[in-house]
Design a protein around this nucleic acid. Sequence first.
DNA 1: GTCTATACTTTGATAGAC
DNA 2: GTCTATCAAAGTATAGAC
Lengths: 196, 196
Amino acid sequence: MYGAVMSTPERLVEATRELLWERGYVGTSPKAIQQRAGAGQGSMYHHFTGKPDLALAAVRRTAEELRAAAGTSLDRPGTAYERIAGYLLRERDVLRGCPVGRLTMDPDVIADDRLRAPVDETLDWLRGRLAEIVEQGQARGELSGALVPADIAATIVATLQGGYVLARASGSTAAFDAAVRGVLSLLDPSAASGSR
Amino acid sequence: MYGAVMSTPERLVEATRELLWERGYVGTSPKAIQQRAGAGQGSMYHHFTGKPDLALAAVRRTAEELRAAAGTSLDRPGTAYERIAGYLLRERDVLRGCPVGRLTMDPDVIADDRLRAPVDETLDWLRGRLAEIVEQGQARGELSGALVPADIAATIVATLQGGYVLARASGSTAAFDAAVRGVLSLLDPSAASGSR
DNA sequence: GTCTATACTTTGATAGAC
DNA sequence: GTCTATCAAAGTATAGAC
């Protein structure tokens, strides 16, 4: 796995990231991590104190990557609507769900402040970025001043996270796409969709 | 637990429902179910063939209950906006999340068509009900005819499901409330919020 | 229907050789 | 740094007595 390019600790963290995404914290065993990383028991426990330690490294790395990727998308030029649409419509592996949001359904992650912190910070950061974009859109007269930027930002992030839930429930991306179209139609300045 | 009112099979199903909600399928062990239900091993395996069998009974029951509760809320009279707002703002134990939506993050549930079916059907039913309400609102001139009812319905359900994710990430209901306010402000016919 | 005994596997980790 | 024991506990049952 991972060619022969990565160091053992890196392979262990990558394997943990994948497994946390696929199966969550509770569903991920040290043995499964070792097998996917191509590392032995001793090797894993040499580099990390145990499963929580590895999970912490994995979650932090996943949170960083999500911020980097989302930032790249959100930083694109355009009107507020165009930037939000660009973010919502960017390519995603919808049926896999969100590697960060997924962790909120893991009781052992939520119960551990150190594990939960990167999840919370990432979603909070994302809402902040979107709120800024909404605010700028209002300042430029692109979006209604009646909207509360923080509320709209929360709605946008929730639509994404909930879209994953709908898609996974049905085994199809259709419901995710519908939810995204729906929120965009409500935001679209050229449609005046909020009122009759 | 559960007083002395319920039969052993009923207590087992109730205990399973609670544990699936709290810890998911992977995180729920037969032993934990037995302890919470106050039933022995033999008793559990007498009434159910095993953990998957019990989970199926539990998931079906939870799906039924959600439909009943949501139906009661959605059936209330009022304008389309009022009915949607009533549903979104009804009392919820936000930090516990949705007992049905939660299951979509469980790989063993998603991989098993029998377990996934009640989850899919429930969320699908909910979107259908909301789409009807949007459609009626359009027919009555309360909502813009430009909206696609199925898309708006998906957005509303996704906002809820994603709102739970945001709330659990932060350990607070604030983000859930913000997401709900956001989508309602976009839908509000009295605000003309979609355009500047 | 319920109980206890038994069994096999997986989990999560430690110890010590190399 | 990595490997191979070894281990106690938990998970997921089955068997058979009552």
